[in-house]
Amino acid sequence: MTQHTDLPSDLLPITVGQFFAAHIARDADTASSFLTEDAVIVDQDETLRGREETHAFLRDAGSEFEYTTEQIGAHRVDDTHWVLTVRLEGTFPGGAAELDYRFALRDDLIAELVIANHPA
């Protein structure tokens, strides 16, 4: 059974919180350290696999824009799946977006991250 619970960010798994803090700071080396060797990141229908591709994504994603990131929601789906909802505002087309960062954990590391538009 899926359980959706809104959570404050301090109740998220440490791995998710520390990854997200590093990602916001654009620290790809630290963010990558929270991924499994065979991690998969899906961003807007682009799939990246393994250490090299995911690290390059974390290093380069959004680098052509200036933007701010604010966590506006978080919930636990089950013991290994968590969702952070964030609001981006910046110089990218449209100027604002709400995204879900859907995490799947394995052995206290991120095995999969799917970044998708937050449903309205």
Rank of each mutant, 00 (worst) to 15 (best):
D29Q: 04
D29K: 09
T30L: 12
A31H: 00
S33K: 06
S33V: 09
F34P: 05
D38V: 02
A39R: 01
A39W: 00
V40H: 02
V40Y: 00
I41V: 12
D43I: 08
D43H: 07
E46S: 07
E46I: 08
L48Y: 15
R49L: 06
R49V: 06
R49D: 00
G50E: 02
G50N: 04
R51F: 07
E52F: 12
E52G: 07
E53V: 01
T54A: 05
T54V: 09
H55C: 01
H55D: 00
F57I: 06
F57Y: 15
F57T: 05
R59A: 12
R59L: 15
R59M: 14
R59N: 11
R59I: 05
D60A: 10
A61K: 08
A61D: 11
E64C: 07
E64A: 14
E64H: 09
F65R: 03
F65M: 02
E66R: 15
T69K: 10
E70M: 14
E70R: 15
E70Y: 10
Q71A: 13
G73C: 03
H75V: 01
H75T: 07
H75R: 14
R76M: 12
R76A: 13
R76N: 10
T80W: 04
W82R: 03
W82P: 00
V83S: 11
L84S: 10
T85E: 14
R87F: 01
R87A: 09
E89S: 09
E89K: 15
E89Q: 14
G90E: 05
G90L: 09
P93C: 09
P93W: 04
P93H: 04
G94Q: 07
G95F: 05
A96W: 09
A97R: 12
E98A: 12
L99F: 09
D100G: 09
D100N: 15
F103P: 00
D107Q: 13
D108K: 10
D108A: 12
